[in-house]
């Protein structure tokens, strides 16, 4: 079968590329578009390292056939910081809270947190735990990640008040 042209709104900008039938969103991001933040930890939806936002919802991009999301809006970790490089609240909280070690799960964790906080500015600890329950981290033991996401929520709320 022939490749098709896929058009997406990617981190706020239009993107157009060729994809073979069945190509995953993850492969498209990494191999066609050069966006490497989303990682391939298992390629079967089991680890969450490839999580991106699809029309605002977190998805495991390894499980999404890219030709099925023509015209959708996709956000990756590359599109989270401001254009001048300023980190957003979640990134800052992960940085300051020492919530990264090897860094391989970080992109997925941050994208899940972005989605959670966009819909729920004041999540409980349990809600944070549920949000990241599909994301595997082998280094941290999760406590620092949970704390960072709760801290990010506080930071965002403070900014919103100002």
């Amino acid at each position: 079968m022939a490749s098709t042209v896929v058009s997406l709104r990617l981190n706020g900008r239009p993107a157009e590329f060729l994809a073979r039938p069945g190509t995953s969103l993850l492969s498209s991001l990494r191999d066609s578009l050069g966006l490497m933040a989303a990682k391939r930890g298992c390629a079967q939806g089991g680890c969450g390292t490839c999580t991106v936002l699809l029309d605002g919802r977190p998805v495991m991009s390894c499980l999404v056939a890219v030709e099925t999301i023509e015209g959708a809006s996709v956000r990756t970790l590359e599109g989270v910081a401001a254009d001048d490089g300023r980190l957003d609240a979640v990134q800052s909280a992960f940085l300051d809270g020492f919530a990264t070690q090897c860094g391989f799960c970080t992109a997925g964790m941050i994208m899940v947190a972005e989605s959670l906080l966009a819909g729920n500015p004041d999540p409980s600890r349990d809600e944070v735990v549920e949000a990241i329950s599909g994301n595997v981290c082998r280094c941290t033991g999760y406590a620092s990640i949970i704390a960072a996401i709760l801290d990010a929520a506080r930071r965002k709320r403070e900014v919103d008040v100002v």
């Binding site: 490497m36 933040a37 990756t76 590359e78 989270v80 860094g103």
Partner: peptide
């Protein structure tokens, strides 16, 4: 390495 990790650039 943390800045690279949180920006996806590592």
């Amino acid at each position: 390495d943390a800045l690279g990790h949180v920006t996806g650039r590592t």
